[in-house]
Nucleic acid binder design. Structure first.
Lengths: 191, 191, 191, 191
DNA sequence: GATGAATGAGCGTTCATTCAT
DNA sequence: CATGAATGAACGCTCATTCAT
């Protein structure tokens, strides 16, 4: 097993276990065990558990963004762009339930809150696409004139909730329902 | 201190500490300490920490429902009823941030998922009011014809997200924004 | 076993093990084991290992000082007072080899150095008797006019070295040798 | 880098780190890192950490003895020879604090005790010069008639104590104090 | 019934040593 | 030979739970 393979195994094992059992339900020893490496090995790649958690999140973002931006056309009208991003995001979550569950664990933790605070209050962005889209929508008077944070809540709140319900088996989303859901989100934010 | 007083003190202390620090940041000894009782005493009232957590949730619901149902008029049109419930819920969260934070911790935990599963799949209800409202809305063709679970997500997803952002200080909700937010939720679910 | 008994057992076990194997050779688990208590129990009495080490030292001083001050007569001439303290100290070490070995471990550690720094540079004393004695001796022109620190080294350096050699079995000190050694120390510091 | 250079780098790095942080504060990986070699490489030159520690001590002695024996004249009277050796030793410690700190770490460890035991009880010498000097002194009735071990304690105890205090900054030794200190040691051992 | 001291399994992390490259 | 990634036993410490008082 090569060097990068080991790091990858650790990342995979950690993602799985944390997604499934939460941060506290995924001891380092269990992660090491599932990854097929020694307990100390994790610490070659990640300074400590906190860093592992943060890098897992970064890794996830790096996988997620390219996918939802595929075939994204900046020239299209705002509604179409929102539909593209919303459905792509929801589809990604459904197809990558581990990633989604990890994302939830991360958001619902001190790390996630801090990360969010930095993003909203600080200048360092990442989710620019959505922010740009919403700011455009407001200035073009296509979207409701509400604080950005609330528009985000109206758009992503349902997407995350619906993705979770699908993954937990409370509902089964097919392509039709995906589109219907994102359209409903659009109804929520559009003027 | 009477028997019921003791139980109440434990419940209050546990709610505060868990809301503030999460399940894992609130050891039983710390809860006992803040409640002004012995560590062993908690176990007279709650079989173990898991049970305490679950009963805390039940207690919270019992406080929450009477408040949001105050002045709730079954005879009003569906839109008005939704606005009443939605704004009341959001107001309650804002005014009782501890309750809200606890609710979030609970939902984002194995207990919460199991609880939800029972509610949605099983027959035992509780959130009947919303379920009734939404089912009425669908049959009266006022609401979109979507699975109940999705309507819930469209309505509650943003409410929870917005409440959290307010409590974390990312946005400040006044009465106007509360109403605007719930109206936007209505736009999302209405036909 | 009563509450205080447990603390005492821990203190005794820790003293023995640290005296014998050094701080790093005396894991908390081993101390707990020898004390006949659970590993967690130690932490009821001592916040952490560092605190345990420091309190062990305090305990030791509280045992040591009364013994060497027994029958100590402030009115006697300086030489006699020095002989009293010196021989008493050396006797104590020989009769309480565990205490001596612990003292050495403590002095030869960051804790000990810091403790020493506080004592010499700060105002908080404890070894006042010796300091007073030496300062008196200097001002009465009985002792050499050297910095206190050096006088301490001349007096205690040999005492500690000789105690260690006795305990390790490199020499066997009887009462005659004890007196001869302290007299030699006196020769070192006296004018 | 040649074979001997590598060994030297390891020795130098180990001495520095152990002198500064103690045996337990100087992991092999850190030593390797500072020496600019691979961690495994150390094990080509030293069987394990224990052996490294012991050889470091031997190296130190090999550096120390030539220095203090420089201009040492066997024909001079005993007092003068003691003064030469004592002041040379103290000066060496002051000028080579790393060596001194290492020496202390070593003496205050199981290795050091074992080493001492071999030297005193066994036949293999090394400190012959001092032993010879003291035995001469006793037979010429210049020194007190005490066991050699005690004479050693009276002579070296203060030297080590005073060197430590200087290095820790508790006193500042200039040439005058160095001589005064060694003269005081002489007063301690002389008849 | 109420207490809180005692427990010990389990946690995150370190590091001397090995061995495939 | 030299390397440094990999190992896993061992560390200090926490905390849900029990039970003698």
């Amino acid at each position: 097993m090569s060097k990068l393979d080991k790091r990858d195994e650790v990342v995979k094992a950690a993602l799985e276990l944390i997604a499934e059992h939460g941060f506290h339900g995924a001891p380092m020893a269990m992660i090491a065990n599932r990854a097929g490496v020694g307990a100390g090995t994790i610490y070659r790649y990640f300074e400590n558990k906190e860093v592992l958690i943060a890098e897992l999140y970064r890794d996830l973002e790096e996988r997620l963004f390219p996918v939802i931006l595929e075939k994204y056309d900046q020239e299209k009208p705002i509604r179409e762009k929102f539909m593209h991003l919303g459905t792509a995001l929801l589809r990604y979550f459904i197809e990558n339930p581990l990633d989604f569950r990890y994302l939830e664990q991360f958001h619902n933790s001190p790390f996630g809150v801090e990360h969010r605070r930095d993003k909203i209050l600080g200048e360092k962005e990442g989710c620019d696409i959505f922010r740009d889209l919403f700011e455009d929508g407001i200035s073009q008077q296509v979207l409701k004139e509400l604080p950005l944070v609330i528009l985000f809540a109206l758009a992503f709140g349902p997407i995350l909730a619906v993705a979770r319900d699908h993954i937990l088996g409370f509902v089964t989303l097919d392509e039709g329902l995906i589109i219907a859901t994102i359209e409903a989100c659009w109804d929520g934010i559009r003027r």
